[in-house]
Every structure is written in structure tokens, then in C-alpha cells.
């Protein structure tokens, strides 16, 4: 309803995103990152429990680690599940966002 009123269908939104995907769309990454921040702390200097901090990593490393979970090289059921539906565009966006996040 809301999207129809505004003309912002998911298809249109996805189209907008893909334009900026190559360099990693920070705004899209920030939205996607909200799935991560249920467990991974922002604004912290040390991790709590068994969930690492993921802010400030360089983008290339970030994407490589996501791919390791996606392909099962790294082993964690929750991370394997989350990365299963991340494509190149989503990984680049997340990496771009977390690289500059604190």
C-alpha cells in the first residue's frame, strides 16, 4: 500500500541498488547490516560472548570471510544460513557499510 502510493516497489528499489553495486552501496549495506547487528555489536571496543566484532574491517577481507561461510569453509550454522542468500551485490554493500561503521 505504502509502496504503491510512493511508487517504490521492491523491484524499483532493487533496480536502484544495482546501479551502485560495484563499489558497494553503503545505504543498501546499512539496511542489510541490520540483520547482522541483532548479534554483532556496533559501537563496542570488545566482543561479548562468542560473537566477534565486525566493524572497521577492510572490504575485501569482509567479503572473503562471508564467502568462506557461504561455501562452508568456515563452520557456523547461523552464518552459513545468513550468507546463503547474500549475492555479490549484497556482500559488497555489507562490506562497504561495515568498513566505515564504528
Amino acid at each position: 500500500m505504502i509502496r504503491r502510493v510512493l511508487g517504490f516497489s521492491p523491484v524499483v528499489a532493487a533496480g536502484l541498488v544495482s546501479v551502485a553495486a560495484a563499489e558497494g552501496d553503503v545505504a543498501y549495506g546499512e539496511y542489510l547490516a541490520s540483520e547482522c547487528t541483532t548479534c554483532h555489536l556496533l559501537g563496542a571496543t570488545e566482543a561479548t560472548g562468542g560473537v566477534p566484532l565486525i566493524t572497521g574491517w577492510d572490504a575485501e577481507t569482509f567479503v572473503l570471510i562471508l564467502k568462506d561461510f557461504k561455501t562452508g569453509v568456515r563452520d557456523n550454522a547461523a552464518m552459513e544460513l545468513v550468507t546463503a542468500r547474500l549475492g555479490e551485490e549484497e556482500m559488497a554493500a555489507l562490506a562497504a557499510y561495515f568498513a566505515q561503521a564504528e
Binding site: S34, T37, T38, C39, H40, L41, L42, G43, A44, A47, T48, G49, G50, V51, P52, N76, A78
Partner: peptide, 13 residues
Amino acid sequence: EESLGWYAGIVSD
């Protein structure tokens, strides 16, 4: 231990 990290994460979120 992952659940302890999640708890800290969600309440911060």
C-alpha cells in the same frame, strides 16, 4: 557462548 554475544547484540540494537 554465541547466545551470550547475541544477547549483548540485540539489547544494544
